[in-house]
Simulated assay, not measured.
Amino acid sequence: MDFADADAINQAIRLLSLRHRARAAALLAPLGLHPGQEVLLLELARTGPMIQAQLSDALGVEPPSVTLMTRKLEASGHIRRTPAPSDRRASVVELTESGQALVVRVEQLWCALAEQTVAGLPTRTVAELPGVLRAVAANVATRGARPASPPGTRSRTAGR
């Protein structure tokens, strides 16, 4: 791939990420939420109570980020944290009634954001988009672990 094509792809992904997060932040603000908190609430609604470490894995974020989010959501009354029966050092996180009610509003907001995001795209494209974006995300996750060799060069392990 030449630089112009690579730049176009990378810039489009960067711009989408920035704009989507900004739009999500604007929609979440009236609910008293910040980006990321809604995903935590939705995950708990999907899976039920879980240990913070499991929540961190499920969200793909570092444990300190989950700790910060859970503290804020607990302070606002949307979740509760209790010591895990099997490990008192771990906390089980669950939705409160307030959190369950907020999830309904977040789901509505999430639908509106998705509709705004794909407005004007053909139905077939919209149907294929989640799979394409998951594949792109997987490529970044797996290929980001080891830098690729520049085009035209051999990797050090090639031919071994």
Rank of each mutant, 00 (worst) to 15 (best):
G144H: 15
D7H: 05
Q52G: 14
Q52W: 04
E62G: 05
A101Q: 15
R156M: 07
G144M: 05
Q108L: 14
T67P: 03
A101N: 14
V92L: 12
L95T: 00
L73N: 00
A12K: 06
D5H: 09
M50V: 10
S17G: 12
P151M: 01
V103C: 10
M69Y: 09
V118G: 01
G36C: 13
Q52I: 03
R21T: 14
L15N: 12
L28K: 07
A119F: 02
L27S: 14
R124M: 12
R143T: 09
Q116E: 15
L27G: 07
R23G: 06
A141Y: 08
A148D: 10
A158F: 03
P49I: 09
S98N: 07
R88W: 02
L16H: 15
S56C: 05
L44M: 10
M69G: 03
L18A: 08
S86T: 08
A90Y: 05
N139F: 08
R124E: 15
M69V: 07
P122K: 08
P147Q: 04
T47A: 13
V136G: 03
C111F: 07
L31A: 01
K72R: 15
A8V: 08
G32I: 09
V140P: 00
Q54Y: 13
D2T: 09
A26E: 13
A114V: 05
A25E: 08
R154Q: 14
T82L: 13
P30M: 07
L27R: 14
V106G: 02
E74C: 00
P30K: 14
A6V: 06
D5N: 12
I9A: 10
P83H: 03
A25R: 05
R21H: 05
V136R: 02
A22K: 11
A137P: 03
V92F: 00
R46F: 05
D5G: 11
L16D: 10
T142D: 08
V132Q: 03
P30L: 13
T157R: 14
A75S: 09
D5R: 14
L109F: 07
L109I: 08
T153H: 02
R80C: 11
P130G: 07
H34G: 08
G120M: 03
Q108V: 15
R124V: 15
E74N: 03
S98W: 06
A45G: 01
A101K: 12
A8Q: 10
I79P: 01
G120I: 06
D87V: 11
V136H: 05
G152D: 09
V136Q: 07
E94T: 07
L27Y: 13
L18P: 00
S76I: 04
P63H: 04
E38D: 15
D2I: 02
V61A: 04
T157W: 11
P64W: 00
K72S: 06
G36H: 08
L42E: 05
A137F: 12
S65D: 10
S76F: 02
P83Q: 09
A138F: 10
A148F: 09
I51H: 05
R80L: 13
M1S: 12
Q52R: 12
L129D: 10
A45D: 11
P30Q: 14
Q37S: 12
A112I: 12
A6H: 02
L31R: 02
L113N: 02
L18Y: 13
A127I: 11
C111I: 13
A141I: 13
D87P: 00
S91E: 03
I79R: 00
V92D: 02
E128N: 12
